[in-house]
Design a protein around this nucleic acid. Sequence first.
DNA 1: ACCTGAACACCGTTCAAGT
DNA 2: ACCTGAACACCGTTCAAGT
Lengths: 221, 221
Amino acid sequence: MGRPRTALLDKERITTTALGLVDRHGDFSVPRMAKLLGVQTASVYHHVDGRAGVIELLRERVASAIDAGTLALRPWDAAMAAWARSYRAAFAAHPRAIPLLTASPVRAPQVLIQYEHAAGLLQAAGFPLERIVAVIAGLEAIVLGSALDLAAPETMWEVPADGSTPRFAEALAAGGSGRADAAFELALEAFMEHCRRLLEHGGWRMAAGDGDRGDGVGDRG
Amino acid sequence: MGRPRTALLDKERITTTALGLVDRHGDFSVPRMAKLLGVQTASVYHHVDGRAGVIELLRERVASAIDAGTLALRPWDAAMAAWARSYRAAFAAHPRAIPLLTASPVRAPQVLIQYEHAAGLLQAAGFPLERIVAVIAGLEAIVLGSALDLAAPETMWEVPADGSTPRFAEALAAGGSGRADAAFELALEAFMEHCRRLLEHGGWRMAAGDGDRGDGVGDRG
DNA sequence: ACCTGAACACCGTTCAAGT
DNA sequence: ACCTGAACACCGTTCAAGT
């Protein structure tokens, strides 16, 4: 029983099967994928660079839902904010995959091109060249950090039953159900507003605590 | 060869060994730990709730380096910023552990007590009760998201050699070496300033785009 | 080129047997 | 209570053999 006339497997089907397993069970294994695909475990290795390769495919698949068109919006802050929301929404669609995906970054060309667009956008908007990576990386940190909150929603903010954290419990109860979304929007809004201000006021060179209004926050060293 | 007069193992030694393996090799396994500890694999299970239990111990160990004293600082924004920096520094000390640790949150009482202190701090500062969790969660997202950047520093921002991302490459070169730190500081500064402003101006109820100054950024729906 | 069957080293976990 | 030795099911990966 050797090579079939037409290939039984392809990366598409492999990726879909793996993502289905992750969505349902929080993880995948090559043998389980093979069983679902009706194939021997070893067959998968003819199409994919092992387990790590499957994870990379998952990363690309999930990231493909990011709407690159957002970066064509103007002005630049509308573009970056919409991009960040789309980025996070792509991860939010597969919360159980998030721990698998955040361990290492997306290297797919389609995503690197988005970085390129973002860099061009920020450069055109007037950001100093040496700050552009920090802006992109900061925004991405907010996106990924907020995404982690979606991965374990129940346990993330489980409050001890012994009443040892009354004020936190109170705040948690008052916060309502959309906590993760609210935190993301708060951080995103803060980030965009800060960048807008720095751009307008040319404040990039300002030393800490020079008194414009309450900038000196603490141990900056 | 049964039970020894004095126990060979304890959680301390197990945790230290696991963390050493993670620091050196990026991962650990129960058999490898046992070998280093000079003990049978099964022995570890008498002290720890399996592999998941070891990970929880790692979480606690790493989190124990967070300086809870920062939350006693005043004013509230100095406290929160110092806490965030200490939080991130604790993770930064073990970058290869970060993917293991961010998959699920810290449930150790010592850390939950820090949430409690933060909640009290923000309440006393005058934050509306229903926004306090969003402030804490937003700050934590920035901390954890920035920490992920430390886990894979080389590959995180590897630029394709084919010249397909010239502006991004340019920005990367101009950004210098402390990229991850700069991004974290930028996001943290933005977050603290935004919270300060909202507190002072009572802006929490403001609808998006009501014109204060360019707040309406995009697809908020 | 692609699938199979068998093999290998390794893993997490359990458990009866010892003290 | 704690350590051992043996066992079990499962995993990732490789490879020669087939077409």
